[in-house]
Design a binder for these strands. Structure first.
Lengths: 154, 154
DNA sequence: AACAACATATCAGAGCTCTGATAATATGGG
DNA sequence: CCCATATTATCAGAGCTCTGATATGTTGTT
């Protein structure tokens, strides 16, 4: 922009309504967007998206869970998870097999390739995670964590 | 789900890794998703999406700004904002006119219909915003706000 | 055994978000 | 004046997310 004569003064991140005086909902949206963007960049060269990373992490913790299980864990709809799962399957990071007893359920597991890719992702995300807590006291971090959980609960 | 014999124990929101012991990045993602979902529901019957509400709010505060200006304010790409603007224009909530001097720039403003719709949205969102701060002391709220701004700054 | 209720997976359509590429306009330096 | 640089808008393609609808399979009741 720069030199327009009729220019309106727009605030920077952290200033005015974009700062600590703004709406909590707006600040939450802004912070989550910025962090998602950082994750995007950190994982881009691995060809993994943040949602894919999240789903792979859940599959590592709970092998054999279903599409519907993941949806409940991630607070997403089964249809949304279905898209992510389809992309992971096409990339060879996961495999699905019908449940031994319940024909309709497809159990999902990471492949060997998926596990090694997840490890590479974790190394890249580690630093970002550490930065999130940097500069906060233990008490402050506890306040933030408690707030985030309460908001997630609805 | 329910009664499967080989069932794995999956945590509820707020329990285990989904609770205060989890990764801050995961908690942030979960909280932002839950709040976005609440907004979706609150605005659904008005036919407005949360991003559209955010853009309309910015246009009310800074009439005549451009697509690129909005992108900077919202921490989004110009292409993303372009989609939202196109949908708002099709709905008749905004109008665009070439800048008097700079031919390439399109200045955007709310229409009368857009302004009244924005007002209706605000009434619905007001309560959600209040709930976000509910139960926190002033000090705690200040900690949360400071953290959100720092994360947004990157 | 038959039926109702529920869970699971999936298809279709819409909107949001990104990266990459292209064209038009504005600004500043030679 | 001409060209390099930067800004703006837009097109194309991919992935994520939702709502609504459909088909299949399981469970519990009658």
């Amino acid at each position: 922009m720069g030199k327009r004569s009729d220019e309106v003064q727009l605030p920077e991140v952290g200033e005015g309504k974009r700062g600590e005086a703004g709406h909590l909902g707006y600040l939450l949206r802004q912070a989550a967007g910025a962090f998602r963007h950082q994750m995007d960049r950190a994982l881009a060269d691995l060809g993994v998206t943040p949602p894919q990373f999240a789903v792979m992490t859940m599959l590592a913790a709970y092998p054999g869970i279903s599409n519907a299980d993941i949806a409940r864990l991630a607070l997403l709809t089964p249809q949304t998870v279905s898209v992510i799962i389809a992309n992971l399957e096409r990339a060879g990071a996961i495999q699905r097999a019908p449940h031994s007893v319940h024909g309709r359920i497809l159990q999902i597991e990471l492949t060997e390739a998926g596990r090694s890719q997840l490890k590479a992702c974790r190394e890249r995300v580690e630093g970002l995670e550490r930065e999130l807590a940097e500069g906060m006291s233990e008490v402050e971090e506890a306040v933030v964590r408690a707030w985030l959980v309460r908001v997630a609960r609805g």
